[in-house]
């Protein structure tokens, strides 16, 4: 009985945010997003296999744990609406875009499979929106801004802040586009509403991302170099 109520009304920490439940997207859109995500994940596995250094394995696990915990923490934005961390840019800055993509897919999959947060049919879309956009798109933006600012050491925090905010707004826009294409709601209305709310939630994403990176730099700056470890051979 209680379980039934909890299931129907999103209450407590970690209700849905960008975690679309099944039913929000049409079958064609859901299938197309699964196809795109599957290709990206397959490539991410390949790239991680080529470049990931075993010394970064603990960081891989801890980043996944932190992203999972961060996504549980819904913070208040405006009147009756909350938001939470996505973590894609943070994961990519720590681990590189490809390993970070696997981390985000793992978190979204566990949320859907174990915690009924996000549907299984729409999981491809959820992994793409909350993961791939931040880890690939967000990281590309991060790297570009770092170059503009004269290197990663100097550019890390401002670049991460901008990339984090943009990735959240882009994720919201992608979600709105998927909702509109599915005919669930009007595309223009969904875009305006989603981008409007997530422009605010994105500020929280930027703050948490910067705080986490500053903390890591303060206590264990060596962890920030694990990403670029390479085997001597390659």
């Amino acid at each position: 009985m209680l379980r039934a109520i909890v299931g129907t009304i999103p209450i407590g920490p970690g209700p849905v945010s960008l975690h679309a439940p099944d039913g929000f997207l049409g079958p064609i859109v859901a299938a197309a997003m699964w196809a795109v995500t599957a290709v990206v994940l397959a490539y991410a596995v390949k790239r991680t296999n080529q470049t990931f250094d075993e010394r970064a394995i603990p960081l891989l696990g801890v980043t996944a744990a932190f992203v999972f915990a961060g996504q549980m923490f819904n913070f208040q934005v405006v009147g009756g609406t909350s938001g939470h961390l996505l973590g894609g840019v943070l994961a990519a800055v720590l681990l590189g875009p490809w390993a970070a993509t696997l981390v985000m897919a793992c978190v979204v999959a566990v949320q859907g499979l174990v915690f009924q947060d996000g549907g299984l049919v729409v999981m491809g879309a959820n992994i793409f929106n909350m993961g791939v956009i931040g880890t690939l798109g967000g990281f590309a933006l991060y790297a570009a801004i770092c170059r503009l600012l004269g290197g990663e050491e100097r550019g890390r925090l401002p670049a991460a802040a901008v990339a984090a905010w943009v990735s959240v707004v882009a994720a919201a826009a992608a979600m709105a586009l998927e909702l509109g294409l599915s005919g669930t709601t009007d595309l223009a209305l969904a875009l305006t509403a989603m981008v409007g709310i997530y422009a605010l939630i994105g500020i929280g994403e930027a703050l948490v991302t910067v705080a986490a990176l500053a903390f890591v730099r303060l206590v264990r700056p060596d962890l920030l170099r694990l990403r670029d470890l390479r085997p001597a051979a390659s």
Binding site: P10, I11, G12, P13, G14, P15, V16, S17, L18, H19, A20, P58, L59, G61, V62, A65, F66, F68, A69, G70, M72, F73, N74, F75, Q76, V77, G80, T81, S82, G83, H84, A172, M175, T185, A190, A193, M194, I197, Y198, I201
Partner: peptide
């Protein structure tokens, strides 16, 4: 690192907003 994540989860359990978030709100 895991302890930090656990603390974040505990704080989330105690203090997180119960309001519907972004997508659900829309």
């Amino acid at each position: 690192g895991l302890a930090v994540a656990a603390i974040v989860a505990a704080l989330a359990a105690a203090f997180a907003s119960a309001d519907p978030d972004g997508l659900d709100s829309v």
